[in-house]
């Protein structure tokens, strides 16, 4: 083989993988990179989208949103909403997964529970929001039951009171999101070798010791991966909050997604909305990098 032929062959071998990847790269470029770059560029423009000749604004829009107390309240609400959701998704998911994996429960009952526990996953965010609005409205079922049980003396406006709204909307999100953990952990539980538990039995380990020294360490890779993903996804939840409270009452359930939406479609301030969206992007990016590093380390 001549040198020319060899170099052509090498070139082909180098280029071929990129050719195979090119359709995906084009799609990623058009559907992800281009919108992202566009939004970032909008955040540095005055009257982005609304003017055909927008001027350069520098960091003005970032300064404006950082000076807005509602932005900081939204950030705090987002963190509360996300952290509480992830912790409870994990806890409830773990409890239900252990229940469904247990031999002590009758198989028929276990199958029924499996269907019941997975139900929230089958509903869209809009349906979940409507269900919880109906259940938690002042004249709704929840207040009625609590009053009959004597747990509350008067009707609570769960979504309409600034004191309870954020907790109520977080509760609805917890209900909607635990099945992801449950299914993932159940798969993980079924993959733990039984020998571990038999050895623990021989050593005289108790139930909680088996849980803390075998089950949880074995599930830890799944717990960390799913928690990180859940954290990223929950941070961006929009329809549930928008439909249940619209970010109110006052600003008590305003999160970064509703704050950004209002800037864009209520104030038509698309430049500031873009700056806010870039902040969300940076937070999500930080978590994603953390997730990738964790996956690589494994």
């Amino acid at each position: 083989m001549t040198r020319q032929k060899r170099s052509r062959h090498r070139l082909k071998r180098t280029v071929a993988p990129y050719l195979y990847l090119s359709p995906s790269l084009v799609i990623i470029g058009l559907l992800m990179l281009l919108p992202m770059v566009t939004v970032i560029s909008y955040s540095f423009q005055n009257s982005a989208v609304l003017r055909r000749d927008p001027s350069f604004a520098g960091l003005k829009h970032y300064q404006a949103i950082f000076a807005d107390p509602v932005f900081w309240a939204s950030l705090w609400h987002t963190l509360y909403f996300t952290c509480m959701s992830v912790v409870f998704h994990m806890t409830i998911g773990m409890i239900f997964a252990l229940m469904l994996n247990s031999d002590r429960i009758n198989p028929t009952l276990r199958n029924i529970l499996r269907v019941l526990y997975i139900l929230p996953w089958l509903f869209t965010a809009v349906i979940i929001a409507v269900i919880w609005r109906l259940l938690l409205e002042p004249n709704g079922v929840v207040n009625s039951i609590l009053m009959q049980l004597g747990l509350i003396g008067s009707k609570i406006e769960w979504f309409s009171s600034p004191e309870t709204a954020l907790h109520a909307v977080t509760f609805a999100n917890i209900w909607a999101g635990y099945p992801l953990f449950m299914v993932s952990l159940l798969a993980g539980l079924q993959g733990i070798p039984k020998d571990f538990y038999e050895a623990a039995d021989i050593d005289g380990a108790k139930g909680y010791q088996k849980l803390t020294f075998i089950t949880i360490p074995q599930l830890m890779p799944i717990i960390i991966s799913i928690s990180l993903l859940d954290f990223i996804w929950t941070m961006q939840v929009f329809p549930l909050i928008w439909i249940t409270t619209g970010g109110g009452p006052i600003y008590s359930t305003e999160v970064l997604s509703t704050y950004t939406y209002k800037l864009a479609f209520s104030s038509y301030n698309l430049s500031q909305a873009s700056a806010s969206a870039v902040v969300i992007l940076l937070i999500s990016l930080g978590l994603t990098l953390f997730y990738i590093r964790y996956q690589k380390a494994r």
Binding site: R133, E137, P138, N139, K155, E157, F159, S160, S161, A165, T244, T245, G246, G248, P249, I250
Partner: peptide
């Protein structure tokens, strides 16, 4: 009628329709 801060126009009409 309670729930002012999150009540929508559709809910307003529903409450009127249902004699509430």
């Amino acid at each position: 009628s309670p729930g002012i801060a999150t009540k929508t126009e559709q809910e307003k009409v529903e409450e009127f329709v249902n004699d509430r």
